[in-house]
Amino acid sequence: MGKLYVIGIGPGGIDHMSLKAQKAIEESNIIVGYTKYIEMVKPLLQNKEIFSTGMRGEENRCKEALDLSKDNVVSLISTGDSGIYGMAGLILEMRKDEEVHVIPGITASSAAGSVVGAPLMHDNCNISLSDLMTPYEDIKKRVKLAAEGDFVISLYNPKSKGRPHYLKECIEIIKEYRKEDIPVAVVKNALREGEEATIVTLKDFNDEIVDMFSIVIVGNSKSYIKDGRFITPRGYNIRGEE
């Protein structure tokens, strides 16, 4: 009997993968993933059988991975964390009696946060602005409640050609609950080639610099900028002693 590893490869480079993820890929004789993700870990895939699909082939990838894992050791890979907007949930929903192991990776908000400082040090949440799986009215409600609850908010899939105004509208919702001087970070291609990072205040935020390769992190009421770094205090009294 085989097994299936559902692996988060992190931002998209071997340097930021866990040792457990690398060992699982090494153990596997078949690798399944979106074509672009396969390219990101190509040096690890020598002498492996590859099954790849295009961007919208998630269900086919999962079905193929489960079928193949009955008699093989298979790794299904995706960027970020396999359990955060990744393939782990779909695999477990589709699973019958296959042996499945979920291996986490660095999610986009953690990667982006490390680039700009320490914005996620206190209570925070991730919200995807993609309405492919979630109605937009539900998305706006979640943004409102997260803003009202004073969570640091990481916005995934913030902008695309098909929904160019969602980010601007959600930022306007957040402005109802946040002061205009709180920091907002936009990080493109976090921890991989083409990385760019911008930190501004909520007042000066301009959604034109954002694309689908970006993560937008909005600070809470205590977040601030120090020496060009985005910080959300955990609660220690350091600032009071300065």
Rank of each mutant, 00 (worst) to 15 (best):
M1N: 11
G2A: 03
L4S: 02
L4V: 02
G8Y: 08
G8P: 09
G12I: 00
G13P: 00
Q22C: 11
K23Y: 09
I25S: 08
E26V: 03
E26I: 04
I31L: 13
V32K: 14
Y34L: 02
K36L: 13
M40E: 13
L45N: 12
N47T: 00
K48W: 10
E49V: 09
I50R: 04
S52W: 09
S52M: 14
T53N: 14
G54H: 05
M55K: 14
R56Y: 08
R56E: 02
K63S: 15
E64H: 11
A65D: 08
D67A: 12
L68P: 09
S75L: 07
S78G: 15
T79W: 01
G80Q: 10
A88K: 08
G89P: 01
L92M: 15
E93C: 08
M94L: 15
R95D: 01
R95M: 03
K96A: 14
E98S: 12
V100Q: 05
V102D: 05
S109E: 03
A112N: 02
A112G: 13
A118L: 01
A118D: 02
D123Y: 04
D123V: 00
N124M: 09
N126A: 15
I127A: 13
L129I: 02
I139Y: 10
I139N: 08
R142C: 10
V143E: 10
L145F: 06
F151W: 01
Y156H: 07
Y156V: 01
Y156R: 05
P158Y: 14
P158C: 13
K159Y: 09
K159M: 07
P164F: 14
E169P: 05
C170G: 12
I171F: 05
I174D: 00
E180A: 14
E180M: 13
L191I: 00
G194C: 12
E195C: 06
V200P: 04
T201G: 07
T201W: 02
D204P: 00
D204Q: 00
F205E: 07
F205K: 06
E208Y: 07
I209A: 08
M212D: 13
M212R: 05
S214M: 04
I217L: 04
V218E: 05
Y224T: 01
D227F: 04
F230N: 10
T232W: 02
T232S: 14
P233D: 11
R234V: 09
R234W: 04
Y236T: 02
E242L: 15
